[in-house]
């Protein structure tokens, strides 16, 4: 932590140590944090943890039921998919894809949105008008439709999905950062920096940015969850992550034709997806309550 950040947080009366203590007393944050940590560990250790090769197909062991069914077995705890691949192993490796997409998309969206928001909030006037128009335009565009059209033309795959999601999910970053920067830049110490002759770039990076970092983190965790949902929808429709990759959205699409035979093919991937998004939203709520008390997002 740099010196500016400490003094900056001091000025609004919250010390970083106190932040941790308050975060750990926030039940939602703790539950979400533990859940998120679990997914991160599974994703990182998928190679070691997964009981089978997630890509190994076998016709003789297709559509095995999960262990709690009448004829399930502990060899394939969550059963096998229509290609005979171990479901649990695919679910574990799928966590890696989901987290990579979430993190990278939210980071790209954050870079775009925060830049626009900081510029609009700091310079106001004409700059703000142009950027606000840009935000309104983005909000009016049906993001999913545009994303599908772009993916159809440009081809699919993990990084294209990240690129498309990153360039559509930036609006909330821009809106929130704009308001936050407007509030911060009218505070005394920013005025003081300006009076002392600091350049706009220096004020934005040294004085303003550290104080709106909290807002950024809150939006980041919400948008990471949104990215997981959007990526799942794209993969479900067949234009996102491509087979044979174990993307959760794709797994649900593949299991759809077997809805009657083995509903677990859809249920389990959906539960994993829901828990991950829930974890990200809970962490977001917790960060909001602790870092930016009294504000709505």
């Amino acid at each position: 932590m740099t010196e500016t950040q400490v003094t900056a947080t001091d000025s609004i009366g919250v010390r970083p140590v106190g932040l941790w203590r308050r975060a750990l007393r926030h039940p939602g944050f703790v539950v979400g944090g533990v859940l998120l940590l679990f997914f991160v560990l599974v994703a990182l250790g998928a190679d070691l943890l997964a009981p089978h090769d997630p890509y190994a197909q076998s016709l003789v062991r297709r559509l095995r039921p999960p262990v709690w069914s009448a004829n399930g077995s502990w060899t394939f705890i969550l059963g096998t998919d229509p290609f005979g691949r171990d479901y649990l192993s695919r679910l574990m490796h799928g966590a890696r894809i989901a987290l990579a997409v979430a993190f990278a998309s939210a980071l790209l969206a954050g870079a775009i949105g925060a830049t626009l928001g900081v510029l609009a909030g700091y310079f106001r006037g004409r700059v703000d008008q142009v950027i606000s128009l840009l935000i309104s335009t983005r909000l009016a565009l049906p993001a999913l439709l545009v994303a599908l059209a772009v993916l159809q033309v440009a081809g699919s795959g993990l990084w294209i999905v990240v690129l498309v999601l990153g360039s559509t999910l930036w609006d909330r970053f821009a809106v929130v950062m704009r308001t936050a920067v407007m509030q911060v830049s009218s505070l005394d110490y920013v005025m003081a920096a300006r009076a002392a002759g600091a350049s706009h770039g220096r004020i934005m990076t040294r004085e303003v940015a550290p104080n709106v970092l909290g807002h950024f983190l809150v939006v980041f965790s919400y948008e990471a969850g949104q990215a997981v949902l959007a990526a799942a929808a794209l993969s479900f429709l067949g234009l996102g992550i491509q087979a044979p990759q174990p993307s959760w959205g794709l797994m649900m699409a593949e299991g759809r034709s077997w809805l009657l035979v083995n509903p677990w093919l859809i249920a389990n991937a959906g539960v994993a997806l829901m828990l991950l998004v829930l974890a990200m939203n809970l962490v977001g709520d917790g960060l909001r309550d602790v870092l930016t008390p009294g504000e709505r997002f």
């Binding site: 969850g225 949902l229 799942a232 929808a233 959906g270």
Partner: peptide, 18 residues
């Protein structure tokens, strides 16, 4: 509300179909 916000709509749709 938190749970329903975390569910993709196509998944709720499939569960309803089920």
């Amino acid at each position: 509300a938190a749970v329903s916000q975390a569910m993709p709509s196509f998944w709720s749709g499939l569960l309803l179909i089920l």
